[in-house]
C-alpha cells in the first residue's frame, strides 16, 4: 500500500547523509532529535517563539520547529554539533565558554547557531531594525551591543545570560575583524 502522507527521505546533517522514514507531519527539529540523533537543537516552545531549536540550513539560521523534515530534503543542515572544526571550537563558541555566555545551557545550541548566522548576515551588509539608516549607500554599520541585542532577539534565555551572550558575540565579531585586518 502506498501512503502519500509518509515516506523515506534523506537529510544531509553536518556533512553526513541520513536516510530516515518519516511521517510528513514530522518537524525537522523532531527528525534531528529523534531520528538522526542530533540532540543539540532544543525544543523550547515548538512554535517559533524562543529560538532554542535554531540550526543553519544552507548556511542560514532558521528555527527547526516550524520547518517540516520533508521540506528540508536537499538542503545542507548544520546543528550545533557541526559548528566546530574537529576539536577546534569556532571563535564564537570559544567566546561563549570564556565569557560565560550561558548558565543552564538549554538555549546555548540555538544561541550559538544564531550567532554564527548573525556574524554572516552582518558581514554580508544586512541592516537590522536598529540600523539608523538602511540605505545601501551608508557605510557598513559596526556591530555594536544594540545591533547584537536586536539581531539576537530571536533567541530567548530563561536564565537571563543576555549580558554575557552579547559580550561573547561582540568578542567573536572583534576577533573576526582582527583576522580580516
Amino acid at each position: 500500500m502506498t501512503d502519500a502522507t509518509r515516506g523515506a527521505i534523506s537529510l544531509q546533517v553536518n556533512g553526513a547523509e541520513h536516510r530516515i522514514d518519516v511521517d510528513n507531519r514530522r518537524t525537522l527539529l523532531d527528525a534531528l532529535r529523534e531520528d538522526t540523533g542530533h540532540t543539540g537543537p532544543k525544543k523550547g516552545c515548538d512554535f517559533g517563539q524562543c529560538g532554542a531549536c535554531t540550526i543553519l540550513v544552507d548556511g542560514r539560521r532558521v528555527v527547526s520547529c516550524l520547518t517540516l523534515a520533508v521540506a528540508a530534503q536537499g538542503s545542507e543542515i548544520t546543528t550545533v554539533e557541526g559548528l566546530a572544526e574537529k576539536d577546534e571550537l569556532r571563535p564564537v563558541q570559544e567566546a561563549f565558554v570564556r565569557l560565560d555566555g550561558l548558565q543552564c545551557g538549554f538555549c546555548t545550541p540555538g544561541q550559538l547557531c544564531s550567532a554564527v548566522g548573525v556574524l554572516a548576515e552582518h558581514a554580508a551588509g544586512w541592516p537590522s531594525a536598529v540600523t539608523a539608516d538602511v540605505s545601501p549607500d551608508c557605510p557598513h554599520p559596526p556591530l555594536d551591543a544594540d545591533e547584537v541585542r536586536e539581531r539576537m532577539s530571536g533567541n530567548l534565555c530563561r536564565c537571563g545570560a543576555y549580558p554575557s551572550i552579547v559580550r561573547a558575540v561582540l568578542d567573536a565579531a572583534d576577533e573576526r575583524a582582527e583576522v580580516a585586518r
Binding site: 529560538g51 528555527v63 531594525a129 539608516d133
Partner: peptide, 19 residues
C-alpha cells in the same frame, strides 16, 4: 523603499525572516 526594509526587519526574528 526604505520603509519596506524597516517594516520587514521590525517583524519576527532573523531566523523566521530567513525562511
Amino acid at each position: 523603499y526604505p520603509a519596506l526594509s524597516q517594516a520587514v526587519l521590525a517583524g519576527a526574528s532573523g531566523q523566521l525572516r530567513n525562511v
